[in-house]
Write a protein that binds this DNA or RNA. Structure first.
Lengths: 228, 228
DNA sequence: TTTAGGGATTAGGGATGTCTAATTTAAGTA
DNA sequence: TACTTAAATTAGACATCCCTAATCCCTAAA
């Protein structure tokens, strides 16, 4: 049963929103995510339900079925392998792979996926630090890291992962050398959630609006944080 | 002005048919090529004409405008670079690249094209021996080679190019080691155009139906052919 | 318990790309 | 010249995916 590229985008969006929410995903969230109107989403949900990709409670939102999850993970696997491949073999920068992967993920064959996975030596994460679901499509373990926006001043953390959902976020972070593996010191938490961190080789201060800090997933540096 | 993948397929089909025909390309030829019905083609031709991609004489067929040719060559460049890249860097066999390239050619960015061209060292031909239109999009010189189906018995020729329009042809030739650069001896020209050639390391006889031999473009081996 | 507000759905329509059936045109034949 | 026929076009319809406007449903507040 072939899915259209558009349907795949809906499945992927529902999967990502599901992980942020835990609960059922609402029509309006999907509409925002995909930049379409609510009635458009409703009619697509009808089709996804017919195909057993989602379960629905009228007026209450949707969740993916086991089948829907399998499809979502396959798409995400495509996306992240493409990002890794473009970065490592075709000189793409960390920030610009997303858009290309977003288009190509719907059009590559299983053979293509297998080939680039082999060329990459079957990697477990993509260049953003996101786990790549493996070919047997196990469910990945619960989202790694904690949002940077949740930390107090003077905490030292290491970036584990950056959400690639928004190219504005990627551009901004790449420009300031905030990538997976980078060590950050939280310098200041200002009103409205603006966070200033020290990053990069020169410990340059970088200010992150809350909506960006929310997408930087980090791990604490265990003992160190106690002493600063 | 973005073109849909479907429009691009029409432009590509018209370009290829144009080269076979010299004259105007007829509706029914396009319909056969793309496996759609004639009315479907007619209505698409209306749209291509609106966009200045083709010129039309009602009931008499179409030809590409300069703009249409530019678009066609861009698509063909994508296609052939993809074939070359998949073959050289992702272990695709010579025969199986076509289908993948046919899908991806519509979805890759200029940056992707530039990257794979660089990775290939700006090649001039693809793995089938077809010229790759360069980035400045000059018109390629008139089709190279002569169809194998036009040769007499006991001629020695070298394969220059194989049409990649039909995967049956590709499979058949790949299986018998007939690829660009292969030297062939025409052994027998039988009734109904069936041609037997000697090919490969062991000079194994291979029989080619006329519709396949038609797609093998060859050059003569100048002096040698006189003496056999 | 009733009601106001907001999110979800239904109703109806547009663009794209496809189809079958009917009609028109070009061009060769008698 | 008139006729026949094959190819091309027009007519009308369907599926997909999108929209705006109108209506419906849930829930929280009075």
């Amino acid at each position: 049963m072939m899915l259209s590229a558009v349907m795949e985008d809906y499945i992927k969006a529902i999967y990502h929103l599901h992980k942020e929410n835990e609960e059922r995903v609402r029509t309006s969230e999907i509409a925002d995510e995909l930049d379409v109107t609510a009635p458009t989403v409703t009619s697509m949900l009808d089709k996804l339900e017919e195909r057993n990709l989602i379960e629905r409670k009228k007026y209450k939102g949707v969740s993916l079925t086991a089948h829907g999850k399998r499809v979502a993970l396959e798409i995400i696997r495509h996306h992240r392998l493409l990002e890794a491949y473009l970065t490592e073999h075709l000189d793409y920068s960390w920030a610009e792979v997303h858009e290309e992967a977003d288009r190509l993920e719907h059009h590559i064959s299983d053979e293509f996926v297998t080939s680039i996975a082999a060329a990459l030596d079957d990697p477990e994460t993509d260049p953003h630090g996101d786990p790549i679901p493996n070919s047997t499509l196990e469910l990945p373990d619960g989202g790694p890291g904690i949002a940077l926006s949740e930390f107090e001043e003077d905490t030292i953390v290491i970036v584990e992962q950056v959400s690639d959902r928004d190219s504005e976020v990627l551009e901004y972070l790449a420009d300031h050398e905030i990538t997976p593996g980078t060590e950050l010191t939280v310098r200041e938490v200002a009103p409205f959630g603006m966070i200033t961190v020290l990053a990069g080789d020169n410990d340059q201060p970088v200010s992150l609006p809350q909506h960006i800090a929310h997408h930087v997933r980090v791990a604490t540096v265990e003992p160190a944080q106690v002493f600063y």
